[in-house]
C-alpha cells in the first residue's frame, strides 16, 4: 500500500469510482484519511451522493408547464 497522500483531484476520481465499483480496502483507508482533513472533498462526496439521489428520482413528471423562473 502506498502511503503517499492523495490529492483532491485523485480523491474526486476515487469518490466517483466508489459509486460504481467496490473500492480496494487500502484505497479506502487513504481516502478516509483525506476526508478527515479536507472539508472541500467532504462536500463533493455529499454532492455526488445527492446527484445519485436526484437521478433516481428524476423522470417524466407533471411539470412541463412550470415556468422556468418559478422558484
Amino acid at each position: 500500500m502506498s502511503t503517499d497522500k492523495l490529492t483532491c483531484k485523485q480523491v474526486a476520481r476515487i469518490l466517483s469510482d466508489g459509486l460504481d465499483a467496490q473500492m480496494p480496502p487500502a484505497e479506502r483507508t487513504r481516502l478516509r484519511l483525506h476526508m478527515v482533513v479536507c472539508e472541500a472533498c467532504r462536500n463533493v462526496e455529499q454532492q455526488f451522493d445527492l446527484l445519485r439521489r436526484l437521478m433516481r428520482k428524476a423522470g417524466p413528471a407533471e411539470r412541463d408547464d412550470i415556468p422556468d423562473d418559478e422558484r
Binding site: N43, Q46, L50, R53, K57, A58, R63, I66, R71
Partner: peptide, 20 residues
C-alpha cells in the same frame, strides 16, 4: 467546493429537476 444549502429541500423541488 462549498457545502450546498438545504440539499434535502432541493430533492423535493420540481424546479430543481428542471435545472438537472
Amino acid at each position: 467546493p462549498v457545502a450546498w444549502v438545504e440539499p434535502e429541500r432541493a430533492v423535493e423541488q420540481a424546479q430543481m429537476m428542471k435545472v438537472l
